[in-house]
Amino acid sequence: MTGPARLSRSGIALALGPALVVVGLFLVVPLLLVPIASFMEANPWGGVRPTFSVEAYVQVLFEEDFTGELIFNDAYPRIVLRSLALAALTTALCLLAGFPVAYVIALQPKSRQGILLLLVTVPFWTNLLIRTYSWIMILRDEGLINNGLEAAGVIEEPLRLLYTNGAIAIGLVYTFLPFMVLPIYAAIERIDRGLIEAAHDLYANRRAMLRHVVLPLARPGIAAGAILVFVPALGSFIAPALLGGGKHLMIGNLIQAQFGASRNWPFGSAMSLILLAAVLAVLLWQAQRRRSGAWQP
């Protein structure tokens, strides 16, 4: 094997140049605009007025009462906490549902694995909005589940399924499951089959083998999947908007509303930064755990 070809300094600049321009223009600049906007005053017709203000951050925790004094309001912190909880629940459910799927696919003959992986990605082929709408058809009072249960005589009154936290969680799990399955599959697929046989040879039944060999070796895949699910789930707004019925907002809905109907860009920007901070905190915690954990690649 030969090592990677060496590039001269100017060669490196030339190769990376276009990417740096794109990232700079379309990622860094907008990202810098967010904190700037968050420290300005809202323009009631949209946009911001270029006056310095911390109003947006005050608004996150406090509201003015009729005398003009600030009193603590937990409405927004609760939305943040609910978002974190729902994203964590989504991640856990995706892991529970996704790991067995990934394991089974990885154990299939190579020729069949490709088809199964394709099937995992089938939901991506249609629009997310439409896919989430179809869950309304399934979950609503006259939906598939309630009608089915009623017809079977299990229930008399329709169950309250739509517009609950549960409905949001279902929608999120459905949306993000493939992001869990694919990295775990990749990790398990790389595990030497000989290790599985060795575990069996050393008196481990299937369960013990999974626990002591497959699970630890799949950990990098599980970590990647958890991040890929948790991060977008935390900021998602379609599932809570459609399946939460506006009563169960998540952070994403709140932000989206600020740039839409509420016309409060600074507040939306402030919430975005809080979301960013939450994601970074979780990622750092993960990285920390992995570094101190026993497993090393």
Binding site: D192, G194, L195, E197, A198, A199, D201, L202, H212, V213, P216, L217, A294, W295
Partner: peptide
């Protein structure tokens, strides 16, 4: 019965 595998198959973790 135990096996010493051709590729050793030691658990890397």
């Amino acid at each position: 019965i135990n096996t010493v595998f051709q590729s050793y198959a030691l658990f890397p973790h």
